[in-house]
Structures are given as C-alpha cells and as structure tokens.
C-alpha cells in the first residue's frame, strides 16, 4: 500500500536556503528508507505557484497557491508501507515533522 506524505512548514525558514545539517538529515533519511521511498521532491516556494481554473471552457489563471495557509506545502514523499502506523513512524523521522506538520494520505486503489 502506498501513502503520499505531504510536508507542510513555514517556508520562510528556507528564505536563505537550507541549512547544511538539515540537508544532510534529509539525505540520511532518504538513505535509511531507500527501500520504501518510491519518490520524493521538494517544491519551489508558494510565491512561484499558479492556480488554474476552468469555467465554462474558459481557463482562468491566478497567481499564488490554491489556499493561503500558516504552513505551506514544501515537498512530498511517496512511501510504501503496510499500515498507517508504519507510514506515520517513517514520516516522524522527516526533519519537517519537528518544525511543521506532515500529512499522510493513502493513495487511492481502484478495485
């Protein structure tokens, strides 16, 4: 079973780039869990986001993310785990879990 792990934290923390030690922590996290991490990426800050809506076949594009939140989506991992407990336990080792919130959502399986 796969879980999408969404990382939310205050992106102002990275306004001047990542700290080297935190960066190394992500590297170590990736290595330790290489067997269960199916993919993962960091996103550019929400200032780069555009939101697209299609209404009556017309495309409306606006600046900014879908919603303004206190913490912002900064990246994600796709994990393979047998239960929410296992997924949550892996997710708790992501450095962002200490600074922000990590949301774990099951990927939909079509039966």
């Amino acid at each position: 079973m796969q879980y999408l792990v969404l990382i939310y934290e205050d992106e102002k923390r990275f306004a001047n780039g990542f700290s080297e030690s935190e960066f190394a922590e992500y590297g170590a996290f990736g290595k330790t869990n290489a067997g269960v991490i199916k993919s993962g990426n960091a996103l550019q800050p929400t200032g780069t986001a555009k939101t697209v809506r299609v209404r009556d076949s017309k495309t409306l594009t606006t600046d900014g993310p879908f919603a303004e939140t206190k913490e912002q989506l900064g990246g994600f991992y796709l994990l393979e785990a047998t239960s929410i407990d296992e997924a949550a336990s892996i997710a708790s080792a992501i450095p962002a879990a200490r600074y922000g919130s990590v949301e774990v959502r099951p990927i939909m399986v079509f039966s």
Partner: peptide, 29 residues
C-alpha cells in the same frame, strides 16, 4: 508521476514535539 488520493478524511497528521511523536486526525487544513 500521477496518483489519486483517498478522501481527505483518511489523512493523518504527524508532528514531533520535544522528541515525542504526535499522531492526530487530518487533514492539515
């Protein structure tokens, strides 16, 4: 890549505070 997600009610939040893992019902927002 592309994936569909289960409904937001199935989301779980994980936070670590002072070394303690806190698991709560999601979604984040």
């Amino acid at each position: 890549a592309a994936d569909p997600l289960e409904a937001s009610a199935t989301a779980t939040i994980v936070r670590v505070q002072e070394g303690e893992v806190l698991v709560t019902d999601g979604p984040f927002a």
